[in-house]
Design a protein around this nucleic acid. Structure first.
Lengths: 310, 310
DNA sequence: ATCTAGCCATCCAAAACGCGCATTGGTCCA
DNA sequence: TGGACCAATGCGCGTTTTGGATGGCTAGAT
């Protein structure tokens, strides 16, 4: 027995035949509309009625009428058919990348300035692409990219995996966060040597490797030795310590959007002038169709970032 | 060419195969669940993908995964399949008479008392049967029953058509509607001879044939001749004239629920004591499955009506 | 590196299905 | 009573689908 002799479920073809017959109230015309002849259409409707166990059409040789059950089923059938079409349409839109969902990982720091700008662009340029946000540090993002938990990550270098494609989407200056009363607040702009032998709240090498390595390199290049009071991973926490007067901190300028009472910011001259870089990374073999459209947004930022360097 | 070489619409079988495969993420197990072997299941899903023009499942030889489009389509497919089952269920319920709609014609007079009682019964005994109400005079109801515009009519005799089944559902006394100041208000109960040579607002033979003929017969039997001031069809309008002091009217007791200022009612003794009869009628060949359940309600009223006669 | 197990796609013959044609049976109208 | 009309049915045929066998591919074990 391959197919059961009575099949307990109907098919869409039967629904289409029924709707045509119910609307035309004439098997011949309905068959014409279905691009077939009358006998098979009759059979399809008989089959449907048999499956349902319900007579849907009252047919005398002179007239075809809907039974009460048929009237109800006609509405249901139309709804089902409408749903099938919209389902196909929606799926094709997803597949074509016109719509869809991108899961985006981002670091806390990128959330202060770059991410809001990006989401604003998305709203105007790709309104049908939803973005699901997950905050995580860079190393977690790399892991999540590999397992597919996120489609794209906004993270800090280094990103060495070969299966990733990366672009730089933003470069930022460093700014100094200084507590109320700090003598250096008198200057409009600081230099790295202003931090020589001064208390500094530093980045933890484990949790914030990028910032840690970058600052270490900058200081080393100029032969400067700040006094590390405390190492932290989160910029938010560092500013809290600055506010407590424990010392200064060097943070990306976007962190200025975090307003802490009694914490003031001053520009810092570095070489290069915008040492804080943010990258976007995604698996080259990611098959999310919405990715292409989303990457277009990022590439605009990429050129902006390059232009800002000029 | 019978079927077009590419068919632009999918079938439910394909949806069921896809849902099974998407849930099992394993073609072999999915095929077992569908009671078939793996190759045809693969073909059905390929067909579906080809029709949609979208890859739904990412299948390596080691694992099967949903594509983003497939994830969306899985939700849609489940919804469609759920809808097909509920559609079948609903239709079967209609056909079995458990649920449905009865279109009911009723005369204005029956709406004063009998109809509200009937609808109350329906609410408690057949809550799934909807009743659509259409007020019309008896002759219109006969016409509408024939054309199928209503399933059941609540109307007055005579109903002579052979294709109808009728039952008596209510019998009522006549009451006199008297204007303020009418001398007969002094009596608790009136007799027909109290209307001899008195001004009476009468029923029009065209619009209210039943009441007209009934009253004419009652008066004739006792040799009484009231003075017909005006003939009307609607009880509502007659009471308005009574209120104006133009004369008295004889109306079914249910009309007392129409409260007019300065219109007072008194019982009237007649032979038989309940001369106003209300019948339900329906086409014997009516195929509305909900009819049986609805008629059960009416038959309760029928026995009540008979009991009231004892 | 080779082997093995697991899994999906493809190939093929047979069965099943749906189609169209011709015809029947029934109703309405002239 | 004959003709027109309409849906149901019988039947042969082409297409589709099915299940078994096979092939290609990958991951993990030896």
């Amino acid at each position: 027995m391959t197919g059961a002799s009575f099949w307990s479920q109907f098919e869409l073809r039967q629904l289409r035949c029924f709707v045509a017959a119910a609307e035309e109230l004439h098997f011949g015309r309905a068959a014409a509309r279905m691009n077939m002849t009358q006998p098979p259409l009759s059979r399809q409707i008989q089959l449907l009625e048999h499956v349902l166990g319900v007579k849907l059409l009252d047919r005398t040789s002179r007239a075809v009428k809907l039974t009460p059950a048929g009237r109800v089923f006609l509405l249901e059938a139309r709804r089902i058919l409408r749903l099938t079409e919209s389902a196909a349409l929606a799926t094709r839109r997803i597949a074509s990348g016109e719509a869809g969902t991108i899961t985006l990982g981002f670091t806390a720091a990128s959330g202060y300035s770059f991410l809001p700008r990006l989401l604003l662009q998305r709203a105007s340029h790709a309104p049908n692409i939803d973005v699901a946000l997950k905050e995580m540090v860079s190393s977690e993002q790399v892991e999540s990219l590999l397992t597919g938990r996120i489609d794209v990550g906004l993270l800090r270098p280094p990103i060495t995996r070969g299966e990733f494609t990366t672009i730089k989407v933003a470069s930022e200056r460093l700014v100094a966060a200084l507590p109320f009363g700090d003598a250096r607040l008198g200057q409009a702009s600081l230099r790295l040597k202003d931090f020589d032998h001064q208390p500094l709240i530093m980045y933890a090498p484990e949790g914030a490797r990028y910032f840690h390595d970058m600052l270490t390199a900058l200081f080393e290049a100029e032969g400067i030795t700040p006094v590390t009071i405390q190492s932290l991973s989160q910029i938010h926490s560092m500013l809290a310590l600055v506010r407590a007067g424990i010392g200064a901190a060097l943070v990306p300028e976007a962190a200025q959007s975090l307003h802490f009472d009694d914490v003031h910011f001053r520009a810092v001259e570095t070489d290069p002038p915008q040492p804080v870089e943010l990258f976007a990374a995604w698996r080259t073999d990611n098959d999310n169709p919405a990715l292409a459209g989303f990457l277009d947004l990022l590439r605009q930022d990429e050129s902006d970032a390059v232009a800002a360097l000029d």
